[in-house]
Amino acid sequence: MQLVDQWNRRIRKLRVSLTDQCNLRCRYCMPLHPEFLDKSSYLTPQQYKEVIGELLDYGIEEVRITGGEPLVRQDFDEVIQELAKLKIPSLSLTTNGLLLHRYWDVLKAANVLNLNVSLDSLQPSTQAAIARRDCLADILRNIQEGIARGFSLKVNTVVMRGINDCELFDFVEFARKTGVTVRFLELMRVGYANSLYEEHYVSAQECIARLQERYTLTPLPAAPDSTAFYFTIDENVKVGFIASESQPFCSSCSRWRLTADGRLFACLFSEEGLSVRDKTPGQRQQIYQQLLGMKPLRRVEQVSHPMYGLGG
């Protein structure tokens, strides 16, 4: 069986949520007092290994660990150690960076060397207002330590009008100083962010136009199924953009999502997922086939379910 749908899109990337919980309350992601899954519903490390190992046989090549915040899961190290046994061609992590200092050795031993760190401001007061926690110094400290330890880091920044869109140049200079890749993300109409969209949305093209007032942006080639497109500035600074609102990439999308409680979603904007928890291999094969038919060809305008439940 190959994971290829009727539109000839091959599923080769899997976003894996370990938990919907988080130690921040970013205003575009979740309310101050969210309702989380009961931890008893989480897939066990062995269940993750079984399902993901099966999907590798069906053509999955890249696995990215997400949350919520994956590092708040108490048995995070056990999950990573089990996944490392699968020899996944590309195993990476998305995190807010606050707890990275606890797991450097675990991540390196599992060959998880590519990290995406969510960081929405370089100003302490603005970052605290967005995340609802004074956390900038800790995140920056872990970014610096990760660089020193040989990890490859990307910084993901959700650009919001009137909040942090004045920091575009600051992030470019941060990339120049540290060597990280900075990616500017459009605010998406998912869950809690729907209420912010009209007032705070900024398109990638507007960001590019602003940056071109000061810099020369040279485009870089990107894979057909890449969610991001990239430019270099002055040859050694790399910036990217994820324009899922203004330039949807649905027609070439190669991703599925696995939630912490064992539901597979064909798309971040799918309202319905299919549970693979406690299923036999034969039953799961039927589910994979069914899920191929559930992946939308065109962008859904918005969804009400929270992003932290499906993984960012």
Rank of each mutant, 00 (worst) to 15 (best):
287 I>G: 03
278 D>K: 15
251 S>K: 14
251 S>E: 13
292 L>K: 02
285 Q>P: 02
261 D>Q: 09
265 F>H: 09
254 S>C: 12
271 E>K: 15
267 C>H: 04
282 G>M: 10
283 Q>N: 06
262 G>P: 02
262 G>N: 01
292 L>G: 05
278 D>G: 11
291 L>C: 06
270 S>W: 03
263 R>E: 09
272 E>P: 12
278 D>T: 11
250 C>F: 03
288 Y>C: 08
258 L>F: 10
255 R>E: 04
250 C>A: 03
268 L>F: 03
255 R>F: 04
257 R>C: 04
269 F>W: 08
287 I>S: 01
276 V>E: 02
268 L>D: 10
274 L>G: 04
265 F>E: 00
261 D>N: 13
255 R>P: 00
291 L>G: 04
281 P>K: 05
267 C>V: 12
253 C>W: 06
268 L>K: 12
263 R>M: 10
281 P>G: 09
251 S>H: 15
290 Q>N: 09
261 D>M: 08
255 R>C: 01
276 V>D: 03
277 R>Q: 15
288 Y>K: 01
280 T>Y: 14
255 R>L: 05
258 L>V: 10
289 Q>E: 13
278 D>Q: 15
278 D>Y: 14
254 S>D: 13
257 R>N: 07
263 R>C: 07
291 L>H: 03
257 R>H: 13
274 L>F: 14
286 Q>H: 12
282 G>H: 06
290 Q>W: 00
290 Q>D: 12
273 G>R: 03
269 F>G: 02
251 S>P: 00
263 R>N: 11
275 S>I: 13
253 C>Y: 02
276 V>Y: 03
255 R>V: 05
257 R>G: 00
266 A>Y: 03
253 C>S: 07
250 C>S: 06
289 Q>R: 14
262 G>L: 02
264 L>Y: 01
285 Q>D: 10
280 T>K: 14
274 L>T: 12
290 Q>A: 13
270 S>P: 08
259 T>C: 01
262 G>C: 08
275 S>R: 11
278 D>C: 14
253 C>Q: 05
250 C>E: 04
275 S>H: 13
257 R>I: 07
254 S>H: 06
259 T>H: 02
253 C>M: 06
288 Y>F: 14
264 L>S: 03
266 A>I: 07
254 S>I: 04
273 G>K: 00
251 S>C: 05
265 F>D: 02
284 R>K: 12
273 G>T: 12
272 E>L: 14
254 S>E: 03
250 C>T: 05
258 L>W: 05
251 S>N: 08
276 V>T: 06
268 L>C: 08
268 L>G: 07
